[in-house]
Every structure is written in structure tokens, then in C-alpha cells.
Nucleic acid binder design. Structure first.
Length: 935
DNA sequence: GCGGATCAC
DNA sequence: TATGGTGATCCGC
């Protein structure tokens, strides 16, 4: 396929014909133009090996062969290689025969749908680059000079804000999953092994890396590279447990450490180092455990600072065992320097888990991250906190090593002749004209070696999703069934964190690996299976119809929920709670005094490069659903936290309820699609595929499958603390006050809902509602029991959702008695307010309060809030207005979907669900449309 | 607000 | 036989 040859002609601009100065680098424009002439998308039949750069290159470039820099071998296949080829930019992968490895990878991939899609994406990137180069060609010298001035101004501003005072440490466990598996199965130690499946590997050990086997590579390709490779299935429970152990140690050096995944974290050592100076020697002494490395080994390892060291390509070899390693066994003494502190931490990790970690020490997060990779595995590297050291370090650093610059950004930068961070500085004026403000601001910070010097607390999540890959799924009923299943899972997850959101997004990937997302935002927040599915099925239906009469051939489906409700409809509720709990802590993430100015010349085109807000808001996630660990670092002891009162939380809840006021009734019954509710969704789905399950089968499966108890899957174990919920009195074991707060909110919300349901709504007449309700009741049997506090204490993060009627009554009584006790002061205050000049206005009742005593005023507000809560509990909640018994759902008795109405004409337009009537109309229509698929 | 794309792990 | 899942962000529209 030939792409835009006229544009290619345009691109073949002689060097400097654009009048574009070199901005400090006389040679920098040459590669660009050379590259242009080499952008050639024609299919080439050259063997892979022909595209290998044969010119001598610096080390980093060798690691990045097959990329387009200098225009070498820029054919279609070579372009593809930049996506498909081995990414050996990883520890333990030096000196591999990339030619051979890539040939195997290509042979295994070629012709596959995956390959074809990768090729397509590659061409899109190439076109982006092409466009960028055209923009570049139009930049005048004048523009560039202005940009240069702007860039220099900003650089000097940034320089002023440079902070070298913090000691940031990035710790990364070495080949974590693989290391855990090898530890637990010593026979694996000498074998090339990887963790994952034939479809995808999560990580590999260092033996396997020598064959080119690495993370994110499909197992079947890895097997071709290394036929003796042992593939061990993932065992997240195990990794989580080990991670807990490691995190306990992290917490001792920085109680506010930021975990990035199960095997990685940022720590701020600054405070620890200060304390460390006055540490008694005894506390810097750590004993070897019975089975460990020898002190000699440790000494050898500890010598690996500053300078890179010759590392054995094989990790985790059998270590000598100390027979005398009991209480009187050998020990290791550590000093007070930062290197010693980090070495001590790594030592302790190894003693505790028999696993090694690597660490980077630097004045900011970006640098620390790069440093931790420097002496991997089982090593550490410290970058001195001086400007000179930082700048020197940065100069030689390949841009790809920087967090936030991925393969696409790298390729775009390469096209501009930029490969290292020093190139970045030199071309910054150009970058400011070609890239978005966000991007080039990120670039300029990188080029100066600047990034966040404070480790941000993890903020509340912004979305939650679940997705699954499967063998081709083309039948609408199966697709709907799966969709429902995903909604089920998602609702379950939402429940655990007591979240609800307004935006539902459906993600699909067809068998050609093309990904689409379709989203709908509701005016209210949803969390139940029914509500989520009501939207998701709508979106799915549209996609099916769009594809019609061809079937929608899927290989992946996912459902995401976002736009979580907030207390004030602007900022997320939990954020406000956090900020309340931490009055002293402002947003530290924006510590750099960046001048957010664009060059006056303006950008010709803002090519965006995803910068992932380097270190500003690092995601806390572990890559797999089972692994989701939205836990913050260990909390300070409860007593030290400025505690938020129950009433304050109740207020937050009340605001949330208000925000959700147009909350729809449970109307998920409409358009219900029976699903397999087995916990193992993928398996049951596959079963459905292979056995060509009928809808009826699926339905029967559902009826037969036991209701899963509401299981606790907390990722936090040993660091947990226990809070007692003031609503259900369940003890909630968690490190995260967010979780606890949401638990309370959830209890309040559920109490209100139960009350509402108990008051007898029309939905009781709906057989399907009955069905759902019975499920809910089964699920709630365990969690909440007000009368049995002891039994409730077993719940580890076991968020009780619904108050049993009896218990709720008890709660209500409790609250009522509380109110009674306090009623008098309220009346007195209100009365007195009539006679005096009011000073404060209650945000709840809006009445001005005649007092300047904040304690009294707060007391009044608390009482008002309390009354509000009671009011909601008293049945006047937002959860009213269930639809009148809609009977067009499936007949659950027979297990068959039974459309109740004739199908209406389909409407592409989505009704604005702002008013209940239109919402209802929409759902009726949807249901009818979905019914079509069951005929 | 939506959808595609990029990135990290 | 066969190329993941979760979450975040950015940009153009």
C-alpha cells in the first residue's frame, strides 16, 4: 500500500530549506529529512535481517534497533518492527541475537489478524509523523526564534524551582512473579521460565530473557524462541501476599509510600534519613535469616553503587545456607547514609521474602525510576542531588527510558532526530511548536531532569472496569449474555468500594483486533447490575445493529463505569473527605512553578504525546483485576488523623444522595438477558461457545448456579486497621479511610433503600424484581447483623450493603434516642437566634445561628445533619419512583425470554434520560429491540 | 461528553 | 490454537 506519494514529495525537503534554524544542533535537521525520503510504506519482501542497522551505534541505540532513527531501513516491515519487534529495553536482555529473535517473532505473527492490525496502527503512526513533518516544514526561522526565547524563559523559570532536597527512592522487585514462582518451586530455578499463559506472559526469569522471552509476549511465541520454556500460570494471591510482606518493610521507611503495582513503589526517604542519623546502632543491625545469602555476597552486592556493575545474567541462584542462622546467627550492620538505608531495606526484603529488589535513589520521581533500572537486578543506583550530576545523567539518557514516553512518542521524537534527553533540550523550541503544550512542558521538564519531588497520595479512582477476551463471539444473545455477566462483575466490584458512576462505557474488540468504545452518561449515578446493563445493552445493541446484517464478531468485551458521583457535584466526594482529613496537605503535585505559556507564535499543530502526568498522579493498579489494589500507603494511626465525624460523613452522603436524586428506579428488568452467573465468567462463556449453548441453557445455568456470597477480596492484609461502622457496627478492616467512608455511605444508602423497599413499592408486583430481590437477600444474609457485633467483626473489608429490617429499626431507634438527647440545645439555639443578631448560617437548615461559638454552631450543624439522615432513613429517600410493574420482561418461570410487546421501530437516537418518562420510554423501546434477538 | 490513542504495569 | 486486563490521560471533535 502506498501512502500519499504527493505528501512524500512534500516531505522530501532539502535540509534547512524551511529556513528552520538548527536551534543549537547543526546536524539535527539532517536525519529528519533523510527520514522523510525513507518513509516508504510499500510492501517489501526483504528479509527481516536486511533491515537491521549495521552501522555502529551507541549502546542505547543498539538496544533500540529496528526503529526508524536515521531512516535506516524504513520500509513497511521495518516500521512494523518498531511495534512488533522484540523490546529488549529490559534488564537481562543485553547482547541478544535480535535478528534471529525478531525473525522468529515475525514468522509466528505474520498473516495473523493481530499482525494485520498492528500494521494498520503502525501506518497510522507513520501518517501522524508525516503530518508532523509537514508542520515542521512550514516553520519559519522567525517562529522558531520566538519559540526558542519562550522555551528559554520557561527553562529558567523551571530552573528556579528546582528542588534537590528530597530523597526519592524507587523500588522494583526483580522479575517479581517469576521470582516468587522460582522461590516456591526450586526446580524452576535453573530453567527458563515465565509466568502467564500460552496467550500472554506477565514476566519471565532471567534465563528466559536470554532467549528473548519477556513480559507482554504471547506464550506460544516465547515457546518458539525457547522450546524448553516452562510457563507457570499466574497466582495473584501468592504475589499479593508477598507484596504485603514487602510493603510492610516499605512502610517502615516511608509510611506514606506509594505503591505502583504489586512489585513497585516510590518512597520518600527524606524523613527517614533525618531520623536515621540519631538511630542507635542496634536498630541498624539486621540478622540474616537461616536461609540466606552470605554476608560476603551482600558485600559484593553492596559495592554496586554509582558505577554500573557486571551483573550475572542469572538471578536467584542457590545461596549458601547458614546453618547457625538462629538467634545467634550472622548479622549485617548498616550505616546512616542513604545508600546504606536503601541497602538495608533491600536486605530486609530479601531476608523476609527470599526475593531481591532493585532501587533507584534520586532527587525526584522520574529520576529515581530511571535509576532503579540502572543496576537491575539486585542492585541500586544513586544519583547525587546536584544539578551537575542530574544534568549529566540526563544528557545521555534515551528518551524511551523516561516514564511517559512510549513507543509511539519515541518514534515521533526519533523522526525529529531526537533520541536522548540532550536532543530533547536542543530541539525544545521545535517541540514547543509541534507538540501540545502538555507534551512539550513534559519534555522540557524531562530535559532539565525535573519532575515531582513529592510522592502524591493516591487519589480516588476515576473509573472501574472489567473486560474479557474470548474466542470469537458472534451471536447476539451470547453477546448480551456476556455483557450482562460483565455488568454483574462490575456491579459486584462497585459494591465492594461502594461506588456509583454516571458514565457507562462499553468496549468491544472485534476479531480483527479493532477496538471501539461506546459511552453514555446518565444524569444520575448507577451501580446495580440492572442499571449498568440497561445502558450497556443499549450500546451493544447499537453496535450490533450498525454491523447488521453482518454479525458483530467479537473477541473482547468490556464494561467500564466512570464519572463517580461527588458530594458537591464538582469534586469527587472522597477527595473532599481526604482534604478534610488532611487540612495541612495541599496539592503537592504541582510543585514546579511552571509558566503555562505558549510561545506567542502559537503552535502550528499540537501533536500530542501522552505524558501520563509524570509523577503527578501515578496510577495505583496492578494490571489485573484480581490485582486491583486501591490501597494507599499505610495510614497513620487512627488517633493521629483528624477524624471526620459520623455526621460529617452523613452530610457528604446526603449531598451525594441529593446529587443522585433523579436516580432511576430499578428498571433493569426490562431487556433482561439471562446469563451464566458462575464466578468464572470466562470459563462459562467458553463452555457456552463450545457447546453451542442455547439461551435457555444459559438461563437454566443461572437458575442452577448458587448465589455467590459477597466475598472479600481486599488486597491489604497485614497493614490493615479496623474501624467500626457506626451504621451497621460491622468492623471494617482496611487501611484506607476512603474505603471505610464509602462503607458507611453504602450502609446509609442501603438502609435508606431497604426502608424504601419495605414501604412497599409497585415493583413488588414485578416477578423479576422479586427474583432479583431474593438474590439480594441471599447475598446480604451474612454481612450485617446489628444484633451480633461479634459475628460482624469477621468481615475484612466486608462491606455490608443492606440492613436487615430489624437491625435497621434498631439503628433508627439509636439515632432517635440520640436526637432526643440533643434536641433541647437545638431548640434553645433556634429560639435565641430570634432575639440576637445572627452570626452564622447553618449550611443544612439554612437558618442563621445566633452564636459566635463555633463549637455550639458545629453542634447545631451536626444535629441538623443527623435529622437529615433520619429523614432519609424514614422513607423519604431518593430511591422512590420505581416503575410501575413493567411486565415486558422475560418470563422467568420458563427460563425463556418472553417479549411482551411487539417490536417497535428502532430508533438510533438515544433519548435524553433526563426525565423519567423519556427514560421509561427508552427502556421499553430497548427491550423490544432486544427481544428481536430472541425470536 | 465521546471516542480513539497512548502509556504504565 | 494462540497477542491480556485495569486504569489514567490527552486531544480533537
Amino acid at each position: 500500500m502506498r501512502v500519499n506519494s504527493p505528501e512524500l514529495t512534500l516531505l522530501k525537503t532539502p535540509p534547512n530549506s524551511t529556513g528552520c534554524p538548527d536551534s543549537g544542533s547543526t546536524s539535527s535537521s539532517e536525519p529528519d529529512d533523510e527520514l522523510f525520503s525513507d518513509i516508504d510504506f510499500q510492501v517489501s519482501r526483504k528479509p527481516v535481517s536486511d533491515f537491521i542497522d549495521r552501522t555502529p551505534q551507541p549502546k542505547w541505540q543498539k538496544q533500540n534497533r529496528f526503529r526508524m532513527e536515521n531512516g535506516v531501513g524504513s520500509t513497511k516491515e521495518n516500521n512494523l518492527l518498531s511495534r512488533m519487534a522484540l523490546n529488549d529495553n529490559k534488564a537481562g536482555m543485553e547482547g541478544l541475537d535480535r535478528d534471529k529473535i525478531n525473525r522468529i517473532i515475525m514468522e509466528a505473527s505474520k498473516g495473523s489478524r493481530f499482525y494485520e492490525n498492528e500494521m494498520k496502527k503502525e501506518q497510522q503512526v507513520n501518517q501522524r509523523i508525516e503530518k508532523m513533518m509537514q508542520q515542521k516544514a512550514q516553520i519559519t526561522e522567525q517562529l522558531l526564534q520566538k519559540a526558542q526565547a519562550q522555551v528559554e524563559k520557561m527553562a529558567s523559570e523551571l530552573e528556579k524551582g528546582r528542588d534537590l532536597s528530597r530523597v526519592i527512592v524507587h523500588v522494583d522487585m526483580d522479575a517479581f512473579y517469576a521470582a516468587v514462582e522460582m522461590r516456591d518451586c526450586p526446580e524452576l530455578k535453573d530453567k527458563p521460565m515465565a509466568v502467564g499463559s500460552m496467550s500472554m506472559l506477565s514476566t519471565s526469569n532471567y534465563h528466559a530473557r536470554k532467549y528473548g522471552v519477556r513480559a507482554a509476549m504471547p506464550g506460544f511465541i516465547a515457546k518458539k524462541l525457547c522450546p524448553s520454556l516452562v510457563i507457570v500460570p499466574l497466582n495473584f494471591d501468592k504475589y499479593r501476599a508477598v507484596s504485603e510482606e514487602v510493603r510492610e518493610i516499605f512502610a517502615e521507611y516511608d509510611p506514606n509510600f506509594q505503591p505502583m503495582s504489586l512489585d513497585e513503589a516510590y518512597l520518600d526517604f527524606t524523613d527517614h534519613l533525618e531520623q536515621r542519623q540519631s538511630c542507635p546502632e542496634s536498630s541498624l543491625t539486621h540478622r540474616y535469616r537461616s536461609r540466606s545469602n552470605t554476608p560476603a555476597d551482600m558485600q559484593i552486592e553492596s559495592d554496586q553503587t554509582e558505577e554500573g556493575s557486571d551483573l550475572s545474567p542469572v538471578l536467584f541462584e542457590d545461596s549458601p545456607v547458614f546453618s547457625e542462622g538462629d538467634a545467634g546467627g550472622p548479622f549485617e550492620q548498616f550505616g546512616t547514609s542513604v545508600e546504606e538505608a536503601v541497602r538495608e531495606m533491600r536486605f530486609r526484603i530479601e531476608q523476609k521474602t527470599t526475593l531481591t529488589a532493585s532501587a533507584g535513589i534520586a532527587p525526584n520521581m522520574m529520576l529515581a525510576k530511571v535509576c532503579s533500572d540502572k543496576n537491575k537486578p539486585n542492585g541500586q543506583y544513586r544519583l547525587a542531588p546536584t544539578r551537575e550530576a542530574v544534568m549529566d545523567f540526563i544528557q545521555k539518557l534515551p528518551v524511551r527510558k523516561v516514564c511517559g514516553i512510549g513507543k509511539v512518542s519515541e518514534k515521533m521524537l526519533n523522526a525529529l532526530g531526537i533520541t536522548t534527553c540532550s536532543d530533547l533540550s536542543r530541539q525544545m523550541a521545535l517541540l514547543s511548536l509541534l507538540f501540545s503544550e502538555t507534551s512539550w512542558h513534559h519534555f522540557i521538564q524531562i530535559s532539565l531532569g525535573l519532575s515531582s519531588t513529592h510522592i502524591p497520595r493516591h487519589e480516588e479512582r476515576k473509573s472501574m472496569s472489567t473486560e474479557r477476551t474470548f474466542k470469537e463471539l458472534s451471536k447476539p444473545e451470547e453477546q448480551f449474555s456476556l455483557c450482562r455477566e460483565l455488568c454483574d462483575d462490575l456491579a459486584e466490584d462497585l459494591k465492594k468500594e461502594a461506588l456509583k458512576g454516571k458514565t457507562v462505557t462499553l468496549k468491544i474488540k472485534n476479531v480483527n483486533f479493532e477496538v471501539k468504545t461506546r459511552a453514555q452518561t446518565l444524569p444520575y449515578a448507577v451501580a446495580t447490575v440492572e442499571d449498568i446493563f440497561a445502558v450497556a445493552k443499549d450500546l451493544l445493541k447499537m453496535e450490533i445493529e450498525n454491523e447488521s446484517p453482518q454479525p458483530l464478531r467479537l473477541r473482547l468485551m468490556g464494561v467500564r463505569i466512570s464519572a463517580f458521583v461527588s458530594s458537591d457535584d464538582k469534586t469527587p466526594m472522597q477527595k473532599s473527605i481526604i482534604s478534610f482529613l488532611q487540612p495541612g496537605k495541599t496539592d503537592r503535585s504541582r510543585s514546579s512553578p511552571i509558566m503555562h505559556q505558549k510561545p506567542e507564535v502559537g503552535n502550528l499543530c499540537n501533536h500530542s504525546v501522552q505524558t501520563s502526568q509524570l509523577a503527578d498522579d501515578p496510577p495505583v493498579q496492578d494490571g489485573q483485576k484480581q490485582n486491583k489494589v486501591f490501597w494507599r500507603s499505610k495510614q497513620r494511626p487512627t488517633g493521629e488523623e483528624p477524624q471526620q465525624s459520623f455526621f460529617e460523613r452523613a452530610h457528604a452522603k446526603r449531598l451525594e444522595l441529593q446529587a443522585a436524586k433523579p436516580s432511576p428506579p430499578d428498571e433493569g428488568c426490562e431487556g433482561y438477558v439471562p446469563v451464566v452467573t458462575s464466578n468464572n465468567g470466562t470459563e462459562s462463556l467458553k463452555q457456552a461457545n463450545t457447546d453451542d449453548c442455547t439461551v435457555q441453557d444459559l438461563c437454566e445455568n443461572e437458575l442452577a448456579s448458587p448465589v455467590q456470597p459477597h466475598a472479600s477480596t481486599s488486597g491489604c492484609g497485614t497493614l490493615t486497621e479496623t474501624f467500626t461502622c457506626p451504621v451497621c457496627f460491622t468492623k471494617v478492616k482496611t487501611t484506607d479511610l476512603n474505603v471505610f467512608n464509602r462503607h458507611i455511605d453504602s450502609c446509609l444508602s442501603d438502609a435508606a433503600r431497604r426502608e424504601d423497599e419495605a414501604s412497599g413499592s409497585e415493583s413488588d408486583l414485578d416477578p423479576e424484581n422479586d427474583h432479583r430481590k431474593s438474590v439480594v437477600v441471599t447475598q446480604q444474609e451474612k454481612p450485617c447483623d446489628l444484633k451480633n457485633e461479634a459475628s460482624a467483626s469477621s468481615g475484612e473489608l466486608d462491606l455490608c450493603r443492606v440492613l436487615p429490617q430489624e437491625g435497621q429499626q434498631t439503628l433508627k431507634n439509636n439515632l432517635v434516642s440520640l436526637i432526643k438527647v440533643d434536641k433541647k440545645p437545638v431548640a434553645l439555639q433556634q429560639q435565641s437566634s430570634l432575639s440576637r443578631s445572627p452570626l452564622l448560617t447553618c449550611p443544612v437548615c439554612q437558618r442563621t445561628q445566633d452564636t459566635d461559638d463555633l463549637a455550639i454552631f458545629n453542634h447545631h450543624v451536626d444535629l441538623c445533619l443527623n435529622q437529615e439522615v433520619l429523614h432519609e432513613l424514614g422513607g423519604q429517600t431518593t430511591f422512590t419512583g420505581k416503575p410501575s410493574a413493567v411486565k415486558n420482561s422475560f418470563n422467568m418461570d420458563s427460563g425463556h425470554p418472553l417479549p411482551r410487546q411487539a417490536s417497535k421501530g428502532k430508533s438510533k437516537r438515544r433519548d435524553t434520560p433526563s426525565s423519567p418518562p423519556s427514560k421509561k420510554a427508552k427502556n421499553l423501546g430497548l427491550c423490544n429491540t432486544i427481544d428481536k434477538f430472541f425470536r
